[in-house]
Amino acid sequence: MDPFVVLVLCLSCLLLLSIWRQSSGRGKLPPGPTPLPVIGNILQIDIKDVSKSLTNLSKIYGPVFTLYFGLERMVVLHGYEVVKEALIDLGEEFSGRGHFPLAERANRGFGIVFSNGKRWKEIRRFSLMTLRNFGMGKRSIEDRVQEEARCLVEELRKTKASPCDPTFILGCAPCNVICSIIFQKRFDYKDQQFLNLMEKLNENIRIVSTPWIQICNNFPTIIDYFPGTHNKLLKNLAFMESDILEKVKEHQESMDINNPRDFIDCFLIKMEKEKQNQQSEFTIENLVITAADLLGAGTETTSTTLRYALLLLLKHPEVTAKVQEEIERVIGRNRSPCMQDRGHMPYTDAVVHEVQRYIDLIPTSLPHAVTCDVKFRNYLIPKGTTILTSLTSVLHDNKEFPNPEMFDPRHFLDEGGNFKKSNYFMPFSAGKRICVGEGLARMELFLFLTFILQNFNLKSLIDPKDLDTTPVVNGFASVPPFYQLCFIPV
């Protein structure tokens, strides 16, 4: 058959498939802009700032609406009420993970971030239990974070109060905490193996944040037939998995079943207990991918939040002064901060919360999916439909947070200066898919920041009023603009 005829037939089939998918069930789905064949609503979305586009569309179609990214149908949730109703009140029905062709290629359905069903539930339950087990290797997770915080302070001392970009050092600290939990080992910041790991993690975040990856996920045929950065992403992930597998083999040879040292040991012990169960989800494949998931999810998000926190503290020296006064009063100079201190430091706690609220790190979270046909607000959402959640619409709700575009710790303080919780605080998402490392991340943010401010004054290279804190939105995360500062020993 003539190649031209084959091409026309293929394009015609794709067009018909697109029209059929977009028209099927439209009477039951939430409203939304009319999609174009094949490309859907992509032309109506700013790929570099999806969150802003969703906010604009919500003003037209309401808090629940339908979009098509290519052939992929998505239902968008915008605003606290619908997000709570879906992710919390109907948590089980909305607990699936959205379709990610690239991740599915890399992870093969294993791990904790992109798995679904029984596998996801069992691996998540085990990971939560293990991360909360403060007795691994007779050292609590808090001990590990405190140790890394001391190392971080010593690295900052080496800058000798000269101007520096904190990106690298602030990236090393949370990565080392995860390494300590998974591998029972922290690395020197100049260790070549550690630097290679950091390089792969950072490069992957840069790649994932590009519009090209959005295109690959919406048109998965590209993955096999086109060159691009997605190939580098898959190569980096394969490198990390190979490295983790080597460490798993080392653990198998040296493990003491009665004295687990780290996450890998705990997983291997669980595998041993379930070795007679042919349906067990505790396999080497799941261990390797879960460890890679924890490394990827637990490094860049925390380091970016820390980097943004220091920029905001530079911009608002009056806030920094209040935090340091609270540190001096509650902790002093002669001991290290600990998590028990947080309950006695409402202002510092409010500042950490406000940093996370203000920066809105992951504006749309990772997409969910419905696990069955769901009736939601008089609409029928078919099983498997991807759910896109606007966390921006919750964290920047102007009824809950007056002047949401302003950095103001009073958003989390009552009139008496006591810490005030808010149900709208969802930087880790909400419901059954809430970030498994939430507790660890909150511990790291509090301890790293208090250790830094206990030991250093922060000095800006320019007038604080002239510092730009506008986030650089890159399609996946909101990151701070480049800046330098000086760490002046107190």
Rank of each mutant, 00 (worst) to 15 (best):
I387S: 00
L234K: 09
P402H: 09
I289G: 11
A350F: 02
V64W: 00
K190A: 11
P317A: 07
P404D: 04
K160A: 12
T66E: 02
R124A: 02
Q356W: 14
V374P: 00
L314D: 02
S390L: 09
H316V: 05
I19F: 13
E246F: 10
I434H: 09
N231F: 08
H316Y: 14
K232L: 09
E72D: 10
I60R: 10
L449N: 01
I289Q: 13
I257Y: 12
F446R: 02
D414G: 08
F401L: 01
K200A: 12
K190V: 10
T301R: 07
I47R: 14
N133M: 09
D191M: 03
L71W: 15
G96R: 07
K59L: 10
D265L: 00
I178A: 07
V330P: 00
V248L: 06
P471I: 15
A86D: 02
G25F: 08
S365W: 04
N204I: 09
N204K: 03
D143S: 12
S365N: 15
Y189G: 04
F456G: 02
C10F: 13
Q192K: 15
F4V: 14
D191G: 05
L294G: 01
S460G: 14
L312D: 00
E155F: 13
I284F: 10
D243S: 15
P481L: 06
I269S: 09
T389P: 12
S365A: 12
Y189E: 04
E104H: 10
N217Y: 13
L391D: 00
E72P: 00
L413Y: 08
S422P: 02
E326D: 05
C486D: 04
S422T: 07
S254L: 07
A369P: 01
E241I: 08
N258F: 08
N133A: 08
T392A: 07
I434F: 10
S422G: 03
P480N: 10
L7F: 12
T210K: 10
V436E: 02
L152T: 03
A369K: 14
S393R: 02
L268A: 04
T389Y: 08
D408T: 06
V288A: 13
E122S: 13
S254K: 10
P480I: 05
C179E: 03
L458Q: 03
Q276F: 10
E285G: 09
K270M: 11
S280I: 05
I284M: 14
L43K: 06
L310P: 00
G111N: 03
K275R: 11
E203S: 08
I181T: 06
F267Q: 01
F134K: 14
G40C: 00
E400A: 10
P211E: 06
I223E: 05
D165I: 03
K52D: 06
Q279M: 06
R433M: 05
T469N: 15
G431E: 02
R105S: 06
E285T: 10
L14E: 00
Q146E: 13
G91V: 03
V153E: 03
P471H: 10
N258S: 13
K247S: 13
P35M: 04
C216G: 05
H411E: 01
T348H: 01
P489H: 05
L413P: 00
